[in-house]
Nucleic acid binder design. Structure first.
Lengths: 212, 212
DNA sequence: GTCTATAAATAGATAGAC
DNA sequence: GTCTATCTATTTATAGAC
Protein backbone atom coordinates (compact mmCIF):
# COMPACT_ATOMS: atom_id res chain seq x y z
CA UNK A 1 0.00 0.00 0.00
CA UNK A 2 2.48 2.68 -1.13
CA UNK A 3 1.74 6.36 -0.85
CA UNK A 4 0.35 7.58 -4.16
CA UNK A 5 2.81 9.60 -6.15
CA UNK A 6 1.57 12.97 -7.21
CA UNK A 7 -0.83 13.24 -10.08
CA UNK A 8 1.73 12.58 -12.76
CA UNK A 9 0.45 11.71 -16.18
CA UNK A 10 2.28 8.40 -15.90
CA UNK A 11 0.73 7.42 -12.57
CA UNK A 12 -1.21 4.18 -12.59
CA UNK A 13 -4.99 4.32 -12.55
CA UNK A 14 -4.93 3.06 -8.97
CA UNK A 15 -2.61 5.87 -7.88
CA UNK A 16 -4.68 8.47 -9.68
CA UNK A 17 -7.82 7.18 -8.01
CA UNK A 18 -6.16 7.13 -4.62
CA UNK A 19 -5.04 10.71 -4.90
CA UNK A 20 -8.30 12.00 -6.37
CA UNK A 21 -10.26 10.19 -3.66
CA UNK A 22 -8.15 11.75 -0.92
CA UNK A 23 -9.02 15.18 -2.23
CA UNK A 24 -12.69 14.36 -2.57
CA UNK A 25 -12.97 12.85 0.91
CA UNK A 26 -11.15 15.86 2.40
CA UNK A 27 -13.43 18.35 0.70
CA UNK A 28 -16.77 16.60 1.14
CA UNK A 29 -16.41 13.90 3.77
CA UNK A 30 -17.08 10.20 3.42
CA UNK A 31 -20.80 10.44 2.79
CA UNK A 32 -20.48 13.55 0.65
CA UNK A 33 -17.83 12.08 -1.60
CA UNK A 34 -19.16 10.60 -4.81
CA UNK A 35 -17.45 7.78 -6.65
CA UNK A 36 -18.53 9.41 -9.91
CA UNK A 37 -16.68 12.59 -9.04
CA UNK A 38 -13.64 10.66 -7.85
CA UNK A 39 -13.46 8.78 -11.12
CA UNK A 40 -13.94 11.96 -13.12
CA UNK A 41 -11.21 13.79 -11.18
CA UNK A 42 -8.85 10.86 -11.68
CA UNK A 43 -9.75 10.72 -15.39
CA UNK A 44 -10.51 7.06 -14.97
CA UNK A 45 -13.63 5.05 -15.64
CA UNK A 46 -15.85 4.65 -12.61
CA UNK A 47 -15.86 0.87 -12.83
CA UNK A 48 -12.12 0.96 -12.22
CA UNK A 49 -12.77 1.99 -8.63
CA UNK A 50 -14.44 -1.35 -8.06
CA UNK A 51 -11.72 -3.13 -9.93
CA UNK A 52 -9.03 -1.75 -7.61
CA UNK A 53 -11.01 -1.40 -4.37
CA UNK A 54 -13.77 -3.45 -2.83
CA UNK A 55 -16.00 -0.46 -2.17
CA UNK A 56 -16.05 3.25 -1.49
CA UNK A 57 -15.59 2.45 2.20
CA UNK A 58 -12.58 0.22 1.50
CA UNK A 59 -10.97 2.95 -0.58
CA UNK A 60 -11.53 5.42 2.24
CA UNK A 61 -10.07 3.02 4.80
CA UNK A 62 -6.95 2.62 2.66
CA UNK A 63 -6.48 6.39 2.59
CA UNK A 64 -6.81 6.59 6.37
CA UNK A 65 -4.29 3.81 6.83
CA UNK A 66 -1.81 5.40 4.44
CA UNK A 67 -1.97 8.70 6.33
CA UNK A 68 -1.32 7.25 9.76
CA UNK A 69 1.28 4.81 8.53
CA UNK A 70 3.31 7.73 7.21
CA UNK A 71 3.01 9.69 10.44
CA UNK A 72 3.77 6.66 12.62
CA UNK A 73 6.91 5.90 10.61
CA UNK A 74 8.24 9.44 10.81
CA UNK A 75 7.43 9.82 14.48
CA UNK A 76 8.97 6.46 15.32
CA UNK A 77 12.25 7.54 13.76
CA UNK A 78 12.17 10.71 15.83
CA UNK A 79 11.63 8.80 19.06
CA UNK A 80 14.54 6.46 18.32
CA UNK A 81 16.94 9.27 17.32
CA UNK A 82 19.82 10.51 19.42
CA UNK A 83 18.34 13.91 20.27
CA UNK A 84 17.72 15.05 23.81
CA UNK A 85 14.09 14.92 24.99
CA UNK A 86 13.28 18.59 24.39
CA UNK A 87 14.53 18.38 20.81
CA UNK A 88 12.57 15.19 20.30
CA UNK A 89 9.41 17.03 21.33
CA UNK A 90 10.25 19.79 18.86
CA UNK A 91 10.90 17.18 16.18
CA UNK A 92 7.61 15.44 16.98
CA UNK A 93 5.75 18.70 16.38
CA UNK A 94 7.70 19.29 13.20
CA UNK A 95 6.93 15.76 12.01
CA UNK A 96 3.19 16.29 12.29
CA UNK A 97 3.51 19.62 10.48
CA UNK A 98 5.59 18.12 7.68
CA UNK A 99 3.14 15.30 7.16
CA UNK A 100 0.15 17.65 7.23
CA UNK A 101 1.78 19.77 4.54
CA UNK A 102 2.87 16.85 2.40
CA UNK A 103 -0.70 15.54 2.41
CA UNK A 104 -3.06 18.50 2.54
CA UNK A 105 -6.00 16.12 2.73
CA UNK A 106 -4.73 14.74 6.03
CA UNK A 107 -5.96 17.42 8.48
CA UNK A 108 -9.51 17.72 7.11
CA UNK A 109 -9.92 13.97 6.77
CA UNK A 110 -8.71 13.40 10.31
CA UNK A 111 -11.07 16.03 11.71
CA UNK A 112 -13.95 14.43 9.87
CA UNK A 113 -13.03 10.94 10.96
CA UNK A 114 -12.83 12.09 14.59
CA UNK A 115 -16.32 13.52 14.17
CA UNK A 116 -17.48 10.16 12.81
CA UNK A 117 -16.27 8.46 15.96
CA UNK A 118 -13.50 6.61 14.14
CA UNK A 119 -16.03 4.32 12.45
CA UNK A 120 -13.75 3.67 9.50
CA UNK A 121 -10.51 2.93 11.37
CA UNK A 122 -9.47 -0.65 10.85
CA UNK A 123 -7.17 -2.61 13.15
CA UNK A 124 -3.97 -1.73 11.32
CA UNK A 125 -4.79 1.97 11.40
CA UNK A 126 -5.65 2.03 15.11
CA UNK A 127 -2.32 0.26 15.55
CA UNK A 128 -0.53 3.10 13.80
CA UNK A 129 -2.32 5.69 15.92
CA UNK A 130 -1.46 3.82 19.06
CA UNK A 131 2.18 3.67 18.06
CA UNK A 132 2.23 7.44 17.48
CA UNK A 133 0.96 8.06 21.00
CA UNK A 134 3.30 5.46 22.41
CA UNK A 135 6.26 7.15 20.71
CA UNK A 136 5.31 10.40 22.37
CA UNK A 137 4.97 8.58 25.69
CA UNK A 138 8.47 7.19 25.30
CA UNK A 139 9.92 10.65 24.69
CA UNK A 140 8.15 12.02 27.74
CA UNK A 141 9.30 9.14 29.93
CA UNK A 142 12.86 9.74 28.79
CA UNK A 143 12.61 13.41 29.76
CA UNK A 144 11.15 12.51 33.11
CA UNK A 145 14.03 10.08 33.75
CA UNK A 146 16.57 12.82 33.06
CA UNK A 147 14.61 15.27 35.26
CA UNK A 148 13.89 17.58 32.36
CA UNK A 149 10.15 16.91 32.24
CA UNK A 150 7.46 16.36 34.80
CA UNK A 151 5.23 13.34 34.19
CA UNK A 152 2.22 14.24 32.05
CA UNK A 153 -0.33 11.94 30.41
CA UNK A 154 0.91 11.55 26.80
CA UNK A 155 -2.63 11.93 25.50
CA UNK A 156 -2.79 15.41 27.02
CA UNK A 157 0.44 16.42 25.36
CA UNK A 158 -0.65 14.79 22.13
CA UNK A 159 -3.86 16.83 22.17
CA UNK A 160 -1.99 20.04 22.87
CA UNK A 161 0.21 19.40 19.84
CA UNK A 162 -2.09 17.80 17.31
CA UNK A 163 -5.19 19.86 18.11
CA UNK A 164 -3.70 23.26 17.27
CA UNK A 165 -1.63 21.96 14.35
CA UNK A 166 -4.51 20.24 12.59
CA UNK A 167 -6.75 23.21 13.29
CA UNK A 168 -4.24 25.52 11.66
CA UNK A 169 -3.67 23.36 8.59
CA UNK A 170 -7.36 22.60 8.11
CA UNK A 171 -8.75 26.05 8.78
CA UNK A 172 -7.33 28.02 5.87
CA UNK A 173 -10.79 28.26 4.33
CA UNK A 174 -12.44 29.49 7.51
CA UNK A 175 -9.68 31.99 8.23
CA UNK A 176 -10.08 33.35 4.72
CA UNK A 177 -13.78 33.87 5.29
CA UNK A 178 -13.11 35.75 8.50
CA UNK A 179 -10.42 37.82 6.84
CA UNK A 180 -12.59 38.75 3.90
CA UNK A 181 -14.84 40.65 6.25
CA UNK A 182 -11.83 42.57 7.48
CA UNK A 183 -12.97 42.09 11.03
CA UNK A 184 -10.02 40.44 12.67
CA UNK A 185 -6.89 42.47 12.36
CA UNK A 186 -4.44 39.65 12.49
CA UNK A 187 -5.85 36.70 10.59
CA UNK A 188 -2.46 36.15 9.07
CA UNK A 189 -0.66 33.19 10.54
CA UNK A 190 2.26 31.49 8.91
CA UNK A 191 3.53 27.99 9.31
CA UNK A 192 6.83 28.74 11.12
CA UNK A 193 5.05 30.92 13.67
CA UNK A 194 2.44 28.27 14.37
CA UNK A 195 4.97 25.44 14.62
CA UNK A 196 7.21 27.47 16.94
CA UNK A 197 4.23 28.33 19.13
CA UNK A 198 3.11 24.74 19.40
CA UNK A 199 6.64 23.65 20.23
CA UNK A 200 6.86 26.26 22.95
CA UNK A 201 3.48 25.33 24.35
CA UNK A 202 4.24 21.61 24.39
CA UNK A 203 7.54 22.14 26.16
CA UNK A 204 5.88 24.53 28.58
CA UNK A 205 3.42 21.82 29.54
CA UNK A 206 6.26 19.39 30.18
CA UNK A 207 8.69 21.61 32.04
CA UNK A 208 9.43 20.32 35.50
CA UNK A 209 9.93 23.90 36.71
CA UNK A 210 6.20 24.30 36.38
CA UNK A 211 4.05 26.73 38.30
CA UNK A 212 0.79 25.64 39.92
CA UNK B 1 -33.35 31.78 17.14
CA UNK B 2 -33.39 30.32 20.65
CA UNK B 3 -31.36 27.30 21.59
CA UNK B 4 -33.54 24.22 21.28
CA UNK B 5 -34.65 22.90 24.61
CA UNK B 6 -33.88 19.30 25.17
CA UNK B 7 -36.09 16.77 23.46
CA UNK B 8 -39.05 17.23 25.77
CA UNK B 9 -42.33 15.81 24.67
CA UNK B 10 -43.82 19.29 24.77
CA UNK B 11 -41.19 20.85 22.53
CA UNK B 12 -42.48 22.42 19.34
CA UNK B 13 -41.95 20.62 16.08
CA UNK B 14 -39.40 23.24 15.11
CA UNK B 15 -37.41 22.67 18.29
CA UNK B 16 -37.57 18.92 17.86
CA UNK B 17 -36.35 19.24 14.29
CA UNK B 18 -33.57 21.58 15.32
CA UNK B 19 -32.31 19.25 17.98
CA UNK B 20 -32.62 16.10 15.87
CA UNK B 21 -30.85 17.81 12.99
CA UNK B 22 -27.97 18.87 15.21
CA UNK B 23 -27.44 15.24 16.18
CA UNK B 24 -27.69 14.02 12.61
CA UNK B 25 -25.28 16.65 11.25
CA UNK B 26 -22.81 15.89 14.04
CA UNK B 27 -22.89 12.16 13.39
CA UNK B 28 -22.94 12.16 9.59
CA UNK B 29 -21.90 15.58 8.35
CA UNK B 30 -23.82 17.96 6.12
CA UNK B 31 -23.84 15.76 3.03
CA UNK B 32 -24.32 12.57 4.98
CA UNK B 33 -27.29 13.86 6.93
CA UNK B 34 -30.63 12.89 5.46
CA UNK B 35 -33.76 14.98 5.90
CA UNK B 36 -35.76 11.75 6.08
CA UNK B 37 -33.72 10.58 9.07
CA UNK B 38 -33.91 13.99 10.73
CA UNK B 39 -37.69 14.00 10.43
CA UNK B 40 -37.93 10.43 11.71
CA UNK B 41 -35.67 11.18 14.70
CA UNK B 42 -37.74 14.27 15.52
CA UNK B 43 -40.96 12.25 15.14
CA UNK B 44 -42.19 14.88 12.74
CA UNK B 45 -43.34 14.70 9.15
CA UNK B 46 -40.61 15.39 6.62
CA UNK B 47 -42.56 18.17 4.95
CA UNK B 48 -42.40 20.09 8.23
CA UNK B 49 -38.71 20.64 7.65
CA UNK B 50 -39.56 22.68 4.59
CA UNK B 51 -42.35 24.44 6.43
CA UNK B 52 -39.94 25.66 9.13
CA UNK B 53 -36.72 25.97 7.12
CA UNK B 54 -36.00 26.97 3.57
CA UNK B 55 -33.79 23.96 2.88
CA UNK B 56 -31.48 21.43 4.44
CA UNK B 57 -28.65 23.95 4.03
CA UNK B 58 -30.63 26.70 5.76
CA UNK B 59 -31.39 24.41 8.67
CA UNK B 60 -27.71 23.56 8.96
CA UNK B 61 -26.74 27.24 8.85
CA UNK B 62 -29.17 28.00 11.66
CA UNK B 63 -27.56 25.32 13.80
CA UNK B 64 -24.10 26.75 13.16
CA UNK B 65 -25.28 30.23 14.04
CA UNK B 66 -26.94 29.06 17.25
CA UNK B 67 -23.73 27.36 18.39
CA UNK B 68 -21.46 30.33 17.89
CA UNK B 69 -23.98 32.81 19.20
CA UNK B 70 -24.05 30.92 22.49
CA UNK B 71 -20.26 30.79 22.72
CA UNK B 72 -19.84 34.44 21.75
CA UNK B 73 -22.32 35.53 24.39
CA UNK B 74 -20.68 33.56 27.17
CA UNK B 75 -17.17 34.58 26.18
CA UNK B 76 -18.17 38.23 25.89
CA UNK B 77 -19.44 38.20 29.47
CA UNK B 78 -16.15 36.70 30.59
CA UNK B 79 -14.13 39.39 28.85
CA UNK B 80 -16.20 42.16 30.44
CA UNK B 81 -16.08 40.67 33.94
CA UNK B 82 -13.99 42.02 36.80
CA UNK B 83 -11.51 39.16 36.95
CA UNK B 84 -7.80 39.62 36.50
CA UNK B 85 -6.38 38.61 33.11
CA UNK B 86 -5.14 35.17 34.16
CA UNK B 87 -8.52 34.25 35.59
CA UNK B 88 -10.21 35.54 32.47
CA UNK B 89 -8.09 33.16 30.40
CA UNK B 90 -9.08 30.32 32.72
CA UNK B 91 -12.73 31.36 32.39
CA UNK B 92 -12.42 31.53 28.61
CA UNK B 93 -11.23 27.93 28.55
CA UNK B 94 -13.98 26.91 30.92
CA UNK B 95 -16.57 28.69 28.77
CA UNK B 96 -15.63 26.68 25.69
CA UNK B 97 -15.73 23.49 27.72
CA UNK B 98 -19.14 24.28 29.20
CA UNK B 99 -20.59 25.06 25.80
CA UNK B 100 -19.09 21.93 24.26
CA UNK B 101 -20.66 19.83 26.98
CA UNK B 102 -24.03 21.56 26.85
CA UNK B 103 -24.20 20.92 23.11
CA UNK B 104 -22.44 17.64 22.37
CA UNK B 105 -23.02 18.20 18.66
CA UNK B 106 -20.91 21.35 18.76
CA UNK B 107 -17.37 19.88 18.61
CA UNK B 108 -18.01 17.39 15.78
CA UNK B 109 -19.99 19.89 13.74
CA UNK B 110 -17.29 22.51 14.14
CA UNK B 111 -14.57 20.07 13.09
CA UNK B 112 -16.58 19.12 10.04
CA UNK B 113 -17.32 22.71 9.11
CA UNK B 114 -13.63 23.58 9.38
CA UNK B 115 -12.93 20.70 7.01
CA UNK B 116 -15.53 22.09 4.61
CA UNK B 117 -13.69 25.40 4.53
CA UNK B 118 -16.46 27.23 6.34
CA UNK B 119 -18.70 27.04 3.27
CA UNK B 120 -21.88 27.23 5.33
CA UNK B 121 -20.95 30.12 7.61
CA UNK B 122 -23.19 33.09 6.95
CA UNK B 123 -22.35 36.70 7.80
CA UNK B 124 -23.92 36.65 11.24
CA UNK B 125 -22.04 33.50 12.20
CA UNK B 126 -18.67 34.76 11.03
CA UNK B 127 -19.48 37.84 13.08
CA UNK B 128 -19.92 35.69 16.18
CA UNK B 129 -16.65 33.88 15.53
CA UNK B 130 -14.86 37.15 15.05
CA UNK B 131 -16.24 38.48 18.30
CA UNK B 132 -15.01 35.37 20.14
CA UNK B 133 -11.49 35.93 18.88
CA UNK B 134 -11.72 39.63 19.58
CA UNK B 135 -12.81 38.94 23.16
CA UNK B 136 -9.71 36.79 23.62
CA UNK B 137 -7.60 39.53 22.09
CA UNK B 138 -9.01 42.03 24.57
CA UNK B 139 -8.13 39.79 27.50
CA UNK B 140 -4.59 39.34 26.22
CA UNK B 141 -4.13 43.08 25.64
CA UNK B 142 -5.29 43.73 29.17
CA UNK B 143 -2.72 41.26 30.53
CA UNK B 144 -0.01 42.82 28.42
CA UNK B 145 -0.90 46.27 29.76
CA UNK B 146 -0.56 45.04 33.34
CA UNK B 147 2.72 43.32 32.48
CA UNK B 148 1.34 39.87 33.26
CA UNK B 149 1.37 38.64 29.68
CA UNK B 150 3.68 38.98 26.76
CA UNK B 151 2.03 39.97 23.48
CA UNK B 152 0.92 36.92 21.49
CA UNK B 153 -1.28 36.72 18.39
CA UNK B 154 -4.78 35.93 19.73
CA UNK B 155 -5.32 33.40 16.95
CA UNK B 156 -2.35 31.40 18.23
CA UNK B 157 -3.75 31.34 21.75
CA UNK B 158 -7.19 30.59 20.43
CA UNK B 159 -5.85 27.58 18.53
CA UNK B 160 -3.97 26.32 21.57
CA UNK B 161 -7.20 26.43 23.58
CA UNK B 162 -9.88 25.43 21.13
CA UNK B 163 -7.88 22.80 19.25
CA UNK B 164 -7.23 20.52 22.22
CA UNK B 165 -10.64 21.10 23.80
CA UNK B 166 -12.63 20.29 20.69
CA UNK B 167 -10.38 17.34 20.01
CA UNK B 168 -11.04 15.98 23.47
CA UNK B 169 -14.80 16.47 23.34
CA UNK B 170 -15.14 15.13 19.81
CA UNK B 171 -12.79 12.18 20.09
CA UNK B 172 -14.63 10.00 22.60
CA UNK B 173 -15.46 7.52 19.86
CA UNK B 174 -11.91 7.29 18.57
CA UNK B 175 -10.45 6.97 22.08
CA UNK B 176 -12.86 4.16 22.77
CA UNK B 177 -11.70 2.34 19.68
CA UNK B 178 -8.08 2.69 20.74
CA UNK B 179 -8.92 1.59 24.26
CA UNK B 180 -10.78 -1.49 23.12
CA UNK B 181 -7.59 -2.85 21.73
CA UNK B 182 -5.98 -2.38 25.12
CA UNK B 183 -2.94 -0.90 23.47
CA UNK B 184 -2.60 2.47 25.12
CA UNK B 185 -2.32 2.23 28.85
CA UNK B 186 -3.81 5.57 29.70
CA UNK B 187 -6.67 6.26 27.31
CA UNK B 188 -8.67 7.52 30.24
CA UNK B 189 -8.92 11.28 30.27
CA UNK B 190 -11.50 13.17 32.26
CA UNK B 191 -12.92 16.60 31.72
CA UNK B 192 -11.36 18.38 34.75
CA UNK B 193 -7.90 17.07 33.88
CA UNK B 194 -8.19 18.21 30.28
CA UNK B 195 -9.58 21.64 31.16
CA UNK B 196 -6.88 22.20 33.79
CA UNK B 197 -4.19 21.18 31.31
CA UNK B 198 -5.47 23.52 28.62
CA UNK B 199 -5.68 26.36 31.14
CA UNK B 200 -2.11 25.72 32.21
CA UNK B 201 -0.89 25.51 28.64
CA UNK B 202 -2.67 28.71 27.58
CA UNK B 203 -1.26 30.65 30.52
CA UNK B 204 2.17 29.18 29.89
CA UNK B 205 2.06 30.54 26.35
CA UNK B 206 1.17 34.00 27.64
CA UNK B 207 3.51 34.30 30.60
CA UNK B 208 5.88 37.21 30.22
CA UNK B 209 8.52 35.29 32.21
CA UNK B 210 8.85 33.09 29.15
CA UNK B 211 11.93 31.19 28.09
CA UNK B 212 13.15 31.33 24.52
C1' DG C 1 -7.51 -3.46 -17.45
C1' DT C 2 -11.03 -0.74 -19.48
C1' DC C 3 -15.44 0.21 -21.04
C1' DT C 4 -21.08 0.78 -21.48
C1' DA C 5 -25.30 0.12 -19.63
C1' DT C 6 -28.14 -0.41 -16.02
C1' DA C 7 -30.08 -2.03 -11.65
C1' DA C 8 -31.89 -0.64 -7.17
C1' DA C 9 -31.99 2.41 -3.52
C1' DT C 10 -32.12 6.89 -1.66
C1' DA C 11 -31.59 11.81 -2.01
C1' DG C 12 -33.81 16.77 -1.51
C1' DA C 13 -37.75 19.10 -2.43
C1' DT C 14 -42.74 20.29 -3.58
C1' DA C 15 -47.89 20.14 -4.65
C1' DG C 16 -51.96 20.07 -2.66
C1' DA C 17 -55.54 18.13 0.58
C1' DC C 18 -57.04 18.85 5.22
C1' DG D 1 -49.49 23.27 11.11
C1' DT D 2 -49.63 18.65 9.48
C1' DC D 3 -50.11 15.13 6.27
C1' DT D 4 -49.69 11.83 1.71
C1' DA D 5 -47.98 11.18 -2.57
C1' DT D 6 -44.79 12.01 -5.90
C1' DC D 7 -41.23 14.15 -9.13
C1' DT D 8 -36.51 14.20 -10.45
C1' DA D 9 -31.81 13.61 -9.74
C1' DT D 10 -28.18 11.19 -7.86
C1' DT D 11 -26.29 7.43 -5.30
C1' DT D 12 -23.29 2.90 -4.93
C1' DA D 13 -22.52 -1.02 -7.19
C1' DT D 14 -22.51 -4.76 -10.78
C1' DA D 15 -23.03 -7.54 -15.19
C1' DG D 16 -20.90 -8.42 -19.12
C1' DA D 17 -18.61 -7.10 -23.65
C1' DC D 18 -14.01 -6.24 -25.37
Amino acid sequence: MPAPRHRRAGATSRERLFSAAAGEFAARGFAGASVDRIARAARVNKAMIYYHFASKAALYRDILRDMFEAVATRVGETARSGMDPADKIRAFVEAIAVEAEARPHFPPIWFREVAEGGRHLDARTTGHITSIIRALGTIIAEGVATKHFRPVNPLLVHGAIVGPLLLYFASGGVRNRLGHRGVTGAVRLDRPTVVAHVQRVALGALESSGHE
